[in-house]
Amino acid sequence: MTDATPLDREESPRCGEESSVITRGELDSSIVSACCETLIPWLNEEATVLVEDGKLVCPYGDCGAADDIAELDVATRTNELTISAPGHISASLGDSTFESDGFECQRCTRRVSLPDGYELTHS
C-alpha cells in the first residue's frame, strides 16, 4: 500500500497518459504518475546543496536552511542475543555495515545532492 499525496498533472513517461502525480510515502518519497506508478524523472531531480560562508545551505528557495543537511543511510547489523536475567534478553551491538542512501535537508525533508568538488568522509 502506498501512502500517497496528490500533486499536479504530468504526462506519464511509460504510457503517455496525462495523469495526476503522487508522492510515495517511502524513504525516498519518489514522485510517480498515478496511472501506472512510473517514476517521473524531471520531478525527481535532486537540487545541489549550496555552500555559503562555509556552511551547507538547502538549495530550495522556500527553505534555505543552513547547516541542516544530513546523510541518509541504510544499516545492516548483526547483534548477538543473550539472556542476561530472567525474562530479559540483551542484544550486543555487534558488526555494522552502512550504505549511503542519499542526502536531504532536515528542515524541509527534500532530497539534495552534494556539490561537485567535495569529498564525503565519515568520522
Rank of each mutant, 00 (worst) to 15 (best):
E17I: 09
Y118A: 01
Y118E: 01
D116E: 15
A91D: 04
F103M: 04
P13D: 06
L93H: 09
G117V: 09
E99H: 11
E45P: 00
L27D: 11
S92T: 14
E46R: 15
G117D: 11
A75R: 12
N44S: 07
C58E: 06
L56Q: 05
A47W: 11
P86G: 03
R9K: 13
L120P: 02
G16Y: 11
D73T: 14
E99Y: 00
R14N: 10
D53M: 04
G117H: 04
D8C: 07
D67T: 08
L56S: 07
L39A: 01
R111Y: 07
N44M: 03
S90P: 00
P59R: 01
L39V: 14
A91N: 04
D62H: 02
T109I: 11
V51Q: 03
V49G: 01
F103S: 07
D28G: 08
P115V: 09
G102P: 04
T78W: 10
D28Y: 02
G25C: 11
N79W: 10
N44H: 02
C108H: 02
G94P: 12
L81C: 06
V49F: 03
R24A: 12
C63W: 04
S19A: 15
E11L: 03
N44E: 07
V74N: 09
L81T: 12
H88W: 03
L56K: 10
E17A: 15
S30R: 13
E18K: 14
D67H: 04
I83Y: 08
A66E: 14
D53E: 15
L81G: 00
G94D: 04
D62R: 02
T109W: 10
S123Y: 08
I89R: 02
I31E: 10
S19N: 12
L50T: 05
C15G: 08
N79D: 15
W42Q: 13
V112T: 02
E119A: 13
E71L: 14
L39T: 00
E10M: 15
E52D: 12
C15V: 05
P115Q: 06
P86K: 06
E71H: 10
G102T: 03
T2N: 11
L27T: 13
M1I: 09
C15F: 08
P41A: 10
L72K: 11
C58L: 02
E46I: 00
D62K: 05
T38Q: 11
L7M: 14
C63Q: 03
C63H: 04
S92V: 07
A4D: 10
E119G: 07
P13G: 12
I89A: 02
R14G: 00
C108V: 08
C108F: 10
S113V: 05
A75G: 10
G94F: 07
Y118K: 05
A85Y: 06
C15Q: 08
L81Q: 06
A65T: 08
D95G: 04
L27F: 07
S100F: 03
S123L: 05
D73H: 13
I40G: 02
V49T: 04
S84C: 13
V49K: 10
H122E: 09
R107H: 12
R24K: 15
G25N: 06
G87N: 10
P86T: 03
D73Y: 14
